[in-house]
Simulated assay, not measured.
Amino acid sequence: MPDTPIRARIALLGYEGVQMSAVLGLIDLLEIANRYGKETGAGQILHDVLRDGALPDTRFDAVWLPPNLTGQRGAADTAIHTWLSDRHQAGALICSACAGAFWLGHAGLLDGRPVTTHWALEPEFRAAFPKAQLHAESILVDDHDIVTACGVMAWVDLGLHLVKRWLGAEVVSQVCRHMLIDPQGREQRNYRSFRPRLDHGDTRIRDLQVWMEANVTGDLSVTALASRCALPERSLQRRFTRATGLPLSTYAQELRVEKARGLLERSQMPVNEICWAVGYEDPSAFSRLFRSVSGLSASEYRKRFRIR
């Protein structure tokens, strides 16, 4: 067989605090893809792990910012920001996974661009980069020259995306079978948890949140909650949204769906009973709401996430 063509060269940026399991995992995935790419003649993807020291002026087809588990966000890494901007200007595809998107944002690459990151980082990311178009429900967002993936394990989705880009769908299929990966039908909202803000400093609203948490089957209408707080309805709505970031009605829905997730994961209760246990009387309406929030039907969610 003639020499296998080199289709792309990717830089994996091993910055301080990087999640090395993601770096090594992506290297393994690319090596497996290269094995099939060589067998089929589809080509090869070279990779370089860039660690400490000066970043090279080498031409790369793609640069990847992996996740980190240290809480770092890269605001002070100005040398990396400049290098990323220069690589982008030179035509490299710029990629990130999870918190790696913060480095792209600090490099000025995300203004006006659709992007994703881990759902738990959504408030922090929106505050840091208000001009970015965050799609926190998405596993992966491909905006041509910027590709972002959501969570610490979304390097798998990103790796398959890059393999498909340069080696084709047939090699992706072979890699998936080899690594027992099923990349189809996933959305970040399938995994998302509702984590309400409780550190906002408004004690009356916080007391109401605690009461709602313990009384999801109670009357959570604006009228009833305003009466409980001894506040006018409009005042309660304004204060609640300002404190939690969510309108009261949306908050109540998210809270009830989160309670339903827990019951689906930990119990054998029929879906209809779970509907009633979280404060809904109409199972059909509950089913529509659950799917709209989680991206799955209640039975699909239980099948995927049940704790056995």
Rank of each mutant, 00 (worst) to 15 (best):
D3H: 12
A11R: 03
G17Q: 06
Q19R: 07
I27G: 04
D28F: 03
D28W: 08
L29E: 14
Y36M: 00
D48R: 10
D52H: 10
G53V: 06
V63L: 09
V63C: 13
W64A: 05
T70S: 15
A76P: 08
A76Y: 04
Q89Y: 03
A90T: 00
G100E: 12
L109H: 08
D111R: 08
D111I: 02
P114Q: 08
V115F: 05
V115M: 09
A120R: 13
H135F: 06
H135M: 09
E137K: 07
I139E: 01
D145A: 05
V147Y: 05
V147W: 04
A149W: 02
G151A: 14
G151R: 03
V152L: 12
R165A: 12
R165Q: 15
E170W: 06
S173P: 02
V175G: 05
V175P: 05
M179L: 14
N190R: 11
G201I: 04
D202R: 05
R204A: 15
R206N: 15
L208M: 12
W211G: 02
N215R: 14
L220E: 06
S221K: 13
A224Y: 01
A230L: 09
P232F: 00
R238L: 11
R239N: 06
Y251T: 00
A252V: 03
K259H: 15
L264E: 05
E265I: 14
E265R: 15
V271A: 08
N272G: 08
C275P: 02
V278A: 07
F286K: 13
S297Y: 02
R306G: 05
R306M: 07
